[in-house]
Design a protein around this nucleic acid. Structure first.
Lengths: 219, 219
DNA sequence: ACAAGTCGGTTGTTTTTACAACGGAAAAGA
DNA sequence: TCTTTTCCGTTGTAAAAACAACCGACTTGT
């Protein structure tokens, strides 16, 4: 676990905490590590958890498959990001989504209640970590709202424009790469892949965008 | 402002804090109150805020109108609920939605940074309030995820079923009232009102549901 | 009591999407 | 290298939603 301390240091959760303190915090909080192969489920819808998870290696999707087999991808997490924090408090119900490794991944997890309820030797970080959690979950909140913004468009085109514009803004360039292949992008925007594909080509032919594989450009 | 202390006491934010302490906290945090008429905008998309807001009277919608005039209702807040907390930290950008009073409403607001960064006379509540904020925002997070679940359905029917089932579950009865009229429900689910209306009737004729005004029953 | 406005349902038309199926190019694996 | 799989664009058809317009019932305000 030691080798991941530099990674942890750069996470939002441990922002402001030194490496040696992280080290003692980890043992104090009973942190554990687990590895997952590409395609493996890390968590499943309906589970109850009391841990929070930090991805220290790989890439994961938060997603859900509905009754009819349609997949919807809620979000993509990459190294350093946290998940499970919204479901780890006692009053929260079961998980609403699956968490799946889309690359070979490593995850560190530990019980949040120890952060929230006790005041052990980690006490001096207690406040800072809770505050960091608050900031992190705030940011997630804003991301969810953004995603809802993309999905509120009535047509596939509106969803694509909304998503691509935001991605361009986020990456600070009109030319950018999306973290999805076509099927995944369709799953993310909750539309049919082939319909989306033809819509993308229509937009290209109209001179709105250009693209090649996962690289897009707004014109 | 005093008259709202019993209301505040029952909010998630002040959970566990006594009335007399709330009173001193309020003045300490420089809380202010403002009133809004039905239809008035409390906050607008694009604004930057550093306050959090608590609705102490009335009812508000978090919503957004897109380029083409389609409205999408993100959520409905009723008395005792908090808003703005995800946008009040310094690193967060501009508001992504409008906040509108749908009834005559009263709002109390104060600067979060005072909670997060200082340790004044309110110090003994400092931790508790930050923790409460964390729980509250966690719950919002889960609600947003649920809403995304409703919107991820491909058809209007799927969205309706998802929303109505959850509402039934939440209210613990197969017969329940939704906080929307038809136009608002359509705006919430991001579909066309007339299409939704006819879909509802189709579902009724198929014996799936029954309804009258805003009261629905799952059969 | 009357006028104006809101609300919910209905209909018909046009546009858009879902779905299923195919094929070629590229990538992955043996 | 050869085979298999994945990825992406394309097409045609059926289904669904958007849009616009209208009506009657009910509310609201004067």
């Amino acid at each position: 676990m030691k080798k991941y301390i530099p990674v942890l240091k750069r996470t939002k959760l441990f922002s402001g905490v030194g490496e040696e303190d992280i080290s003692s915090l980890l043992s104090c909080l009973g942190a554990r590590k687990k590895e997952y192969k590409k395609g493996e489920y890390i968590l499943r819808e309906g589970e109850h958890i009391s841990d929070i998870f930090i991805l220290v290696e790989g890439k994961i999707h938060i997603q859900k498959d509905d009754y009819w087999g349609n997949r919807s991808i809620l979000s993509v997490l990459s190294v350093g990001e946290m998940f499970g924090e919204a479901y780890s408090s006692p009053e929260s119900g079961a998980l609403l989504n699956d968490v799946v490794a889309v690359e070979d991944s490593s995850v560190i997890f530990f019980d949040v209640r120890r952060i929230l309820t006790t005041c052990s030797s980690a006490c001096r970080f207690h406040n800072m970590i809770v505050q960091n959690m608050f900031f992190a979950i705030s940011e997630k909140n804003r991301r969810l709202v953004q995603k809802l913004g993309h999905m509120s468009g009535r047509t596939t085109r509106a969803k694509l424009i909304s998503y691509l514009s935001e991605e361009a803004k986020r990456q600070g360039s009109s030319s950018f790469t999306v973290p999805f292949n076509r099927q995944q992008l369709a799953d993310y925007l909750c539309v049919d892949r082939s319909a989306m594909s033809s819509e993308l080509c229509k937009m290209r032919d109209e001179g709105l965008i250009s693209f090649e594989k996962s690289r897009f450009e707004l014109l």
